[in-house]
Simulated scan of single mutants.
Amino acid sequence: WRNFFLGSELTRGPWPLRRLDIARMKETADRELRRMGITLDDLEQPVGTLSGGQRQCVAIARAVHFGARVLILDEPTAALGVKQSGVVLKYIAAARERGLGVVFITHNPHHAYLVGDHFGVLRLGTLELSAARGDITLEQLTDHMAGGAELATLKHELSQVRGVELDALPEDLGDTFPEGTT
C-alpha cells in the first residue's frame, strides 16, 4: 500500500493536524489490486520483497487507479521467469481491456504477439514494420524482430568465414557452434 500511494498519499483532518489515512489507503490499494486480479497476502509487505511479476502488477494497478490513459511498459518481462511473465502479460491484457492504451516494448515476439493488436518494429531509429495483428503472423513478426535480411546476410558471411554451408543455421546462433568455438 505504501508503494501504491507513493507521492499521492491520502490524508485526513484539518491542516496543522493532518495525518495519513492509512486505513483508507490499505483498503483502496487492496480493492484496486483485486480489480486487476492481483491478490497479495500481506499489504504491509515491502515492495522490494515482492517477486518481479508482482512488482510489475502493482505498478500497472497503480497507474490504472490514478487515471493513466496510456501505459508505456519498457521490457516489463525481461528479468522474469516464464510463470511471472505470464502473470504480467495477463495484467497487460486486462489493462488494455479496461480501455487503456498500452505501448509494450519488448524483444520477445511471442510476448508481443500474445497481447498486441498492432506491431511496430524499429531498426536503427527507423520504422521497419507497422502491421495490425490480422495482417501478420507470429513467424513474420519473429523474422522482422530477428533481423530478417540482416540475419540472412550474417549467415552468408559466416559460411564464407567458416568455409561451411550454413543455410540451415537456426535462429539461435548460440546453439550452432560447439562450446569453445567462435
Score class of each variant (00 low, 15 high):
residue 64 V to I: 12
residue 147 G to M: 08
residue 94 A to H: 14
residue 93 A to N: 13
residue 108 N to W: 07
residue 12 R to W: 00
residue 172 D to G: 06
residue 26 K to M: 10
residue 128 E to T: 06
residue 33 L to R: 12
residue 143 D to W: 15
residue 12 R to M: 00
residue 70 V to C: 14
residue 4 F to G: 06
residue 52 G to S: 09
residue 52 G to C: 02
residue 3 N to M: 06
residue 74 D to K: 03
residue 162 R to P: 01
residue 154 L to W: 04
residue 27 E to N: 05
residue 34 R to V: 06
residue 112 A to F: 10
residue 50 L to E: 06
residue 99 G to K: 15
residue 100 L to S: 11
residue 123 R to K: 10
residue 131 A to H: 03
residue 126 T to R: 15
residue 90 K to H: 15
residue 130 S to M: 01
residue 68 A to E: 08
residue 163 G to D: 14
residue 46 P to E: 04
residue 37 G to H: 06
residue 24 R to D: 02
residue 149 A to V: 13
residue 127 L to H: 04
residue 66 F to M: 04
residue 34 R to N: 13
residue 27 E to H: 06
residue 150 E to D: 13
residue 22 I to V: 15
residue 118 H to G: 00
residue 138 L to A: 01
residue 6 L to T: 03
residue 60 I to G: 09
residue 148 G to T: 02
residue 44 E to I: 02
residue 112 A to C: 09
residue 106 T to I: 01
residue 10 L to Y: 02
residue 103 V to P: 09
residue 102 V to C: 12
residue 153 T to S: 07
residue 82 V to M: 13
residue 157 E to N: 09
residue 147 G to C: 05
residue 76 P to G: 07
residue 72 I to L: 13
residue 65 H to Q: 12
residue 98 R to N: 11
residue 36 M to G: 10
residue 182 T to R: 11
residue 87 V to N: 10
residue 101 G to N: 12
residue 74 D to W: 03
residue 151 L to C: 05
residue 111 H to M: 06
residue 15 W to F: 01
residue 129 L to C: 04
residue 105 I to C: 12
residue 78 A to N: 15
residue 19 R to K: 03
residue 8 S to D: 12
residue 157 E to M: 05
residue 119 F to M: 01
residue 14 P to E: 02
residue 132 A to D: 13
residue 176 T to F: 14
residue 105 I to N: 07
residue 68 A to G: 07
residue 3 N to K: 10
residue 85 S to G: 15
residue 7 G to F: 01
residue 58 V to G: 08
residue 72 I to E: 07
residue 168 A to Q: 03
residue 161 V to H: 09
residue 62 R to P: 05
residue 139 E to S: 10
residue 155 K to S: 08
residue 128 E to H: 04
residue 117 D to H: 04
residue 101 G to P: 07
residue 71 L to Y: 14
residue 129 L to T: 01
residue 179 E to Y: 15
residue 115 V to A: 15
residue 87 V to H: 12
residue 27 E to Y: 01
residue 80 L to M: 11
residue 80 L to R: 11
residue 73 L to G: 06
residue 178 P to K: 08
residue 121 V to M: 01
residue 52 G to R: 04
residue 143 D to F: 01
residue 86 G to A: 12
residue 91 Y to I: 10
residue 147 G to R: 08
residue 26 K to V: 06
residue 157 E to T: 01
residue 50 L to W: 04
residue 126 T to Y: 08
residue 151 L to Y: 12
residue 10 L to P: 02
residue 165 E to Y: 07
residue 62 R to H: 07
residue 105 I to V: 15
residue 22 I to C: 03
residue 76 P to Q: 09
residue 67 G to S: 08
residue 47 V to H: 11
residue 17 L to V: 00
residue 147 G to A: 10
residue 113 Y to H: 15
residue 150 E to M: 09
